[in-house]
Amino acid sequence: MAAAAAAGAGPEMVRGQVFDVGPRYTNLSYIGEGAYGMVCSAYDNVNKVRVAIKKISPFEHQTYCQRTLREIKILLRFRHENIIGINDIIRAPTIEQMKDVYIVQDLMETDLYKLLKTQHLSNDHICYFLYQILRGLKYIHSANVLHRDLKPSNLLLNTTCDLKICDFGLARVADPDHDHTGFLTEYVATRWYRAPEIMLNSKGYTKSIDIWSVGCILAEMLSNRPIFPGKHYLDQLNHILGILGSPSQEDLNCIINLKARNYLLSLPHKNKVPWNRLFPNADSKALDLLDKMLTFNPHKRIEVEQALAHPYLEQYYDPSDEPIAEAPFKFDMELDDLPKEKLKELIFEETARFQPGYRS
């Protein structure tokens, strides 16, 4: 834990890192770190609560700039109880001085990944967590956004079992017609939660990839272990087919990539493993919904509104309290091709509203 900075004593240090967030945020305490930044909790002297502050230093890398800009653009436009918001952003007053960006968010005690390492969940908890994931996802999908990296560590939890989806750095506007060349190379989302079509096709992607990830998360809540822990690309596919069985001819016809289709045709026939054999203690309604989410063919996979209306979630289902976005989200430009200098300018502009004396 960093010592509390005395008023006016300059930035606090946390594990050798400068955290320049005073005077409003003090009493910093280390939480963890990701690929390009550290997260601390801090005391907000204005709202009198502890908050989470993520320090991001992305400006050396085009990919990190892209992810940072995506996350900020999306989260500043989203407003939903099951999606983490941005409360404040701290950065230098000029673009030349801006080396880091500090993002202030609600402090959540833990995440689903940490929880599943230590606790076996009751059916009631599984049901409530799944409902909140789908409630947040309904809003995301209504904005025409794909999260693309749903996994237990991106689901934040607090002691009252509130759940918030975080990390929109890989999110995209849904565009089933656009052929994202190089899709697989830039697709760094965790393999275990990846839909089979991501490994088999490169053309376009749809909201059904997020539903697949939610199915993987439900299976993990039922058993405290990942359902498809593939060691590499082909191993991942083999794990999936080992449980779902061989795809039907109709399902194979959806695979545009001939090499991928021929690979699947070359494999020995596998039978589907019954879900109640894998999860003998699970609620039968939970397994019915799991089956509809972990469907090989993305066109037959359940959609988020149908999933919310499934009998497993009937005690929570309330369409009048499951809000959607006001308007579909649009990125003005494809960020993939922009140089990091341009992305830095866009991050600077996007964060201006939090600067003292800002006038829109």
Rank of each mutant, 00 (worst) to 15 (best):
L264G: 05
D20Y: 15
V214K: 09
L112Y: 06
T118G: 09
E96V: 12
D332T: 05
E350F: 00
E33V: 10
N262W: 04
A4R: 13
T68M: 03
F59G: 04
S360N: 13
E326L: 06
I72F: 11
T118R: 11
H239Q: 15
F78Q: 13
H232C: 01
L222Y: 11
Q306C: 03
S29Q: 01
I302D: 08
S122G: 02
R191M: 09
F168T: 01
E220V: 13
T160H: 06
L237R: 04
Q62K: 15
I302V: 11
T185P: 15
T206I: 11
S153Y: 09
Y358W: 12
N297A: 02
K340D: 10
Q249E: 07
T190E: 12
T159P: 11
A3D: 12
A309G: 06
L121P: 08
F354C: 06
A282Y: 00
Y312T: 09
L234C: 12
E341T: 06
D336L: 05
G22M: 07
P11H: 15
H269M: 11
S284M: 11
N276M: 01
G85W: 00
G204T: 08
V39I: 05
N238G: 04
T26R: 11
L237Y: 11
G242S: 10
V101C: 07
E303L: 00
G85S: 13
N47G: 12
G8K: 12
K270P: 05
I53K: 01
P229D: 03
D251M: 05
H125N: 15
V188C: 07
Q66T: 03
V104F: 13
T94R: 13
L137K: 03
A325F: 02
F296L: 15
C216T: 08
V51M: 04
H61G: 02
Y102F: 14
A327F: 00
K207L: 11
A9G: 11
D288E: 15
G230A: 01
V173R: 09
H61N: 10
Q66C: 12
Y25G: 06
D124R: 06
Y187M: 04
A5V: 13
Y316N: 15
P356C: 00
Y263K: 09
Y102P: 04
F279D: 00
I243D: 01
L290C: 04
K151L: 08
I140V: 11
V214T: 11
Y263I: 07
K285S: 04
K164Y: 10
D20G: 06
P319I: 08
D124W: 00
Y187Q: 05
E60Y: 00
N154A: 06
L170E: 09
N47T: 11
D336C: 02
D162L: 03
K73H: 10
L290A: 09
P196G: 09
N297Y: 15
E322Y: 01
L134Q: 15
H80G: 06
N271S: 04
D162P: 00
H80N: 10
S122P: 05
A286F: 01
P23S: 06
I209L: 13
L130D: 07
R79S: 14
